[in-house]
Simulated assay, not measured.
Amino acid sequence: MKETWNEKLFGYSNLILLGFIGLISLFPFYYIMVVSFTDSSEYLSSRIILFPKQFTLDAYQYIFSSRIFVTSLGVSGYLAVVGTILSLIVTAAFGYMISRKRLVGRKVITTSLIITILFQPGMIPNYLIINELGLMNSLWSIILPGMLSGWNALLLKTFFENIPESLEESAYMDGANDLKIFFQIILPLSLPAMATFGLFFAVGYWNTFFSAVLYITDDTKWPLQVLLQSMIVQSSTGIADPSVAANMSADQTVTPQIIKMAAIVIATIPILMVYPFLQKHFTKGVMLGSVKG
C-alpha cells in the first residue's frame, strides 16, 4: 500500500527524533574519548573540547606503563571468560531444574531461592565465609560467590517452562539422559537467552571492583578496575608508581581528569567489542522450527 503524506511525515519525524536522541546518548562517550587524547594544558584552558588541537597519548602511556597493567588485563579477561562460562552453566542448570514439574520439592527449592534474593547476608558474613574457606587472595573468591544468580535463575526458569516437554519425552525415548538433554537440546534452543545473560555476567565480572578490594590484597592479582582506580588515586595525590614514573619524561604531566577518561575508554572498549557478536541472538526466535505438527 502506498503511504499517505501524513504517514510519511510521521515516519520522518520519528527518524529525526530517534537520531537526535541517539546523538545525545553517544556524545558523552565521544567527549570522554576526545578528552583522553587531549593535552593537559589544552584541557585546563578550554571549557569544552569537541576535537583535540594537540593530540597526545600521554594518559594511555601513563596507564600502560604500569608494571602490572598487562597482568591486571589478563586477570580481568580470565574472570570474564571463566566466570561467565561457569555462571551460565550453573545458573542455567539450576533454572532448568526448578522449571521441571517432575522435580521433587520444586516449590520448596524455588521459595528458598526467592528468600536468598530478598534477604542478603551482608558484607561481613560473606567476608568471614571467604576467609574460612581459605579463598583470600584467590580469584575464586570473586568467581564462586557469583556463580549462581538467583534472579537470573528465575528468569531462565520462566524461559525453560516455554520449551515443550515433548522434546524431552522424545529424547528420553531415544535413550538420552538428563545431562545429554540439557547440553544437547535445551542449551542450543536457548542461545538468545544464554547470549543475553552471558553478556550480563561478562560485564559484571569485567567490572569487578568491590569484591576484589575486599578479598585480594596482592596487587599482582588485581583486576583491571582496581588497578585503574589505584592509578587514578596515585595521579591525584602525586604519588606515582615508580615503574610508571620511569617511563614518563620529565615534561610529561597528565591531569587526573584525563587519566580518568582514558581509564573509562580502556575499561569500556572490550565489552563494546563483544556486544556485536551477541546482538543477533537477542531478537532471534528461540523456538522457531523446533516443534512441528
Rank of each mutant, 00 (worst) to 15 (best):
L88F: 04
V82R: 03
S41I: 13
N162L: 04
F27V: 11
E42G: 08
G134F: 06
G95D: 04
Y205E: 01
D174G: 12
L227Q: 01
T255K: 03
I143D: 11
I259P: 08
F209K: 03
L57C: 05
F183K: 01
Y78C: 08
A59Q: 01
I130C: 07
Q279K: 13
G83T: 02
T253G: 03
V274Y: 02
F94K: 01
I232K: 04
A245I: 07
Y43P: 00
F159K: 02
G198K: 05
I181D: 02
K53H: 15
E161A: 12
L189S: 10
A262I: 03
V34T: 14
A267F: 08
Q257T: 13
A195C: 08
L272C: 12
D178V: 13
P164N: 05
P242N: 06
T237H: 02
D251I: 07
N162W: 04
A80H: 05
L113A: 08
L272Y: 01
G175S: 08
I32N: 06
K292L: 11
E169L: 12
S290C: 08
D58I: 03
K180I: 14
V203C: 05
I216Q: 09
A176P: 04
V70H: 07
G105A: 10
M248K: 04
A171T: 01
T217W: 07
P276Q: 11
P223M: 00
M248A: 06
W206T: 06
M287W: 12
L224F: 12
G122D: 05
G83R: 00
T56E: 10
E169M: 10
I16N: 04
D178H: 13
I63R: 00
G95W: 07
I266Y: 00
L118Q: 03
T84F: 04
Y43V: 09
R67A: 12
I271N: 04
L228P: 02
S66C: 04
P223S: 01
I271M: 15
A267L: 15
L86M: 12
K280D: 08
V274P: 02
L118S: 05
Y205K: 09
T116L: 05
D251E: 15
I266K: 00
Y205V: 09
G198V: 11
N162M: 11
F277R: 09
V226H: 03
F183T: 14
F27G: 09
T116Y: 04
V274Q: 00
A59R: 06
M147Q: 08
S76Q: 07
G285Q: 09
I232Q: 13
K53Y: 05
I129N: 03
I63Y: 06
L128A: 11
V82S: 02
W140N: 11
